[in-house]
Design a protein around this nucleic acid. Sequence first.
DNA 1: GTGGTCTAGACCACA
DNA 2: GTGGTCTAGACCACG
Lengths: 141, 141, 141, 141
Amino acid sequence: MLLTVNMRDKRPIYKQIVGGIKNRILSGELKADEQIPSVRQLATDMNINPNTIAKAYAELERLGVVYSAMGRGYFVSPDISGAREEEKEEIRRALLLCAENAERCGVEKALVTEMALSAIDEAYEVYKDINERNGENDKNK
Amino acid sequence: MLLTVNMRDKRPIYKQIVGGIKNRILSGELKADEQIPSVRQLATDMNINPNTIAKAYAELERLGVVYSAMGRGYFVSPDISGAREEEKEEIRRALLLCAENAERCGVEKALVTEMALSAIDEAYEVYKDINERNGENDKNK
Amino acid sequence: MLLTVNMRDKRPIYKQIVGGIKNRILSGELKADEQIPSVRQLATDMNINPNTIAKAYAELERLGVVYSAMGRGYFVSPDISGAREEEKEEIRRALLLCAENAERCGVEKALVTEMALSAIDEAYEVYKDINERNGENDKNK
Amino acid sequence: MLLTVNMRDKRPIYKQIVGGIKNRILSGELKADEQIPSVRQLATDMNINPNTIAKAYAELERLGVVYSAMGRGYFVSPDISGAREEEKEEIRRALLLCAENAERCGVEKALVTEMALSAIDEAYEVYKDINERNGENDKNK
DNA sequence: GTGGTCTAGACCACA
DNA sequence: GTGGTCTAGACCACG
């Protein structure tokens, strides 16, 4: 299964799909010019209305991470450097929002810094864990 | 003017009000048991539908940062330690979300760390500026 | 009637709406922060499905010529300089496409130039005619 | 390679082919009664569905720039003056559309004129470059 | 088979 | 009342 929607996630379904596929492209999991599932295919796989998938795909195209070829399907853009820079900028903005919010609430700078560093550690620890788990799986083969 | 809402902000107006007042309380700008503007007063001041203000105040009461005295208005809660802890937890969650997103997009850990630290610096620079400006204001009093 | 769709126009309905409203904004006919018809209102006025209008409005927002305020409606952006520059760039590209096509077909440069100048004259003559007609209307008042 | 199609071009493939071949005929690159590649040949050369090529060739025949000889293939029409006139008319219409659009958006007439002239200059600069390059090729023969 | 557009009708949150 | 999302089902052009 390429994607699953999280019903507890407050984001609309089509944005979850946008985020999921964008992540898979930016992380290199989906390669340049590789075809992604057709609208109807993904719709039946995920048990979601095709219109919703189409809306997500249209936004992905607008973001420049995929392109559509009439009658053939959707493909990963060969050049995603623009989207990658935009993503970094978005992360930067989100971090700044967090920091500003903390500052306005009177949280001390040292505490915010500690929280940020531990959050980053946690996020990248998960990454490490996955790698280690994959390594174990490889051994078991 | 106690508060201003940004009509172009994508967050609903009532949440902008909740955030604005909560920040002013957590930062100590609004003191314990101090009365906040009445629903009607704030509604006319901000040129906003009273229902929207009422919704915001109800949410603030639910969060435990204000309490209502039937027929007399809304007042700042004397004990906001619970809300303060919750706010910290929320910031922590937001930071973790940022970090996880960065990790999923293949951003290197070092870059995220650098971005976070500079964002925090930027947020607290502003804080410092405001303090300095307030200091000048104090002199003028 | 603010807008009409031309069934003989090959462009999809939602793009005709986008173009029509964008033109009215860029030409100054719709002023900054002025509200445009609600999705449902325009849908009933034009006898078109609300989803189609919503699609057009979403694109207009993406283009930066309008902004939406949840629960209140859509409004003309106060700053449309970006959209105006983009529009000029688009016109420039379209003209270049025409010229390249003419060149590839072996049309002489002098002829293309004459055709372009007469086309521009014709387009701005219409403008003049409208002004004159308005002038006559004013006299008749 | 006689032709290449751009998969990221939004125009349908068969229209790209029609345009490409029509241009080569109108510019004199393909001479009267010269045979053009067979449907199968071009389909394998361009790695494109033969149905698409057939559709393009049918359109070219309808436009009167090629004719088919049952079982022997497609050939360039000896008289393409009609198609040439139609092409000029099409270019004229496209230029008028550009001009009208510019007028509706409130672009000043002088600016449109300047944009048109520079676009034509740019297109025919390229033409000049190609001629010079061809000249060099001729010397090498 | 593919994507693109449109209609019809529903539900939600927001003001 | 407003916009935003989602579903269901239809038709079209393209390959």
